[in-house]
Design a protein around this nucleic acid. Structure first.
Length: 206
DNA sequence: CATGGGATTGACT
DNA sequence: GTCAATCCCATGC
């Protein structure tokens, strides 16, 4: 059992999330998601906003989207394809439906527990959190966390380490959707080996 | 109340 | 490369 290094937990405050969702998606790259003893650095995100049809909030307020329209800095967790639970961070002011989908992490702590939850050998680190369904399973995040305050725990997101260099971030189109496919609202840490799929480099010119 | 569609993953050809 | 699993919820009768 590793002892905690600090007695004061540092998490991103609500003001971080109370901004345009695309900015938050970009700025979350390099931040750290923590749940219990498991944590990982965010290397891939996507932004979703009520004004575009790929967002669950596009159709308006409902039982499902209540969290999305709620206050920022809360978790929006929903079931995808009846199997996978996907973790989002609600953004923008209360009343606006917007969230960042956390799509991939570089595992940092609790790898043994992650591997157990993922039913994988601990050697296969790249497969622990390289996808939105995978990382939720690895962190032990589920529907029960829908609506959780990300500034209060037990599920939190921490800022980037201050003395670490700012990560190079690439923007590209979102994955796995059929509507508003043209928006470049997917953000990846350049060169990361823990992405759900390789980042597509935009082709200059043409 | 019945139906159908996913912000995915893993197994298989 | 293809495809099924599985269930919440939005939609429509």
């Amino acid at each position: 059992m590793p002892a905690p290094r600090s007695t004061v937990p540092v998490t991103l405050g609500a003001e971080f999330y109370d901004r345009p969702v695309v900015e938050v998606a970009r700025d979350l790259i390099g931040c750290v998601v923590r749940h219990g003893q498991t944590s990982g650095m965010i290397v891939e995100t996507e932004a979703y906003h009520q004004t575009e049809p790929a967002c669950h909030a596009f159709t308006g307020l409902s039982a499902r989207t209540r969290t999305l329209f709620g206050p920022p800095a809360h978790a929006y967790v929903y079931l995808s394809y009846g199997i996978h639970e996907l973790l989002n961070a609600v953004c923008e002011p209360e009343g606006t439906g917007a969230a960042v989908l956390i799509r991939a992490l570089e595992p940092l702590t609790g790898l043994e527990l992650m591997a157990r939850r993922r039913r994988l050998p601990e050697t296969r680190v790249r497969e622990l959190c390289s996808g939105p369904g995978k990382l939720a399973q690895a962190l032990g995040v589920g529907l029960v966390h829908n609506g959780c305050d990300l500034t209060a725990g037990p599920l939190t997101i921490e800022p980037r380490v201050p003395d670490a260099p700012s990560p190079a971030v690439s923007a590209s189109t979102r994955i796995g959707i059929t509507k508003a496919v043209e928006l470049p609202w997917r953000f990846c840490a350049a060169g990361s080996g823990h992405l759900s799929k390789p980042a597509v480099r935009p082709i200059a010119g043409r």
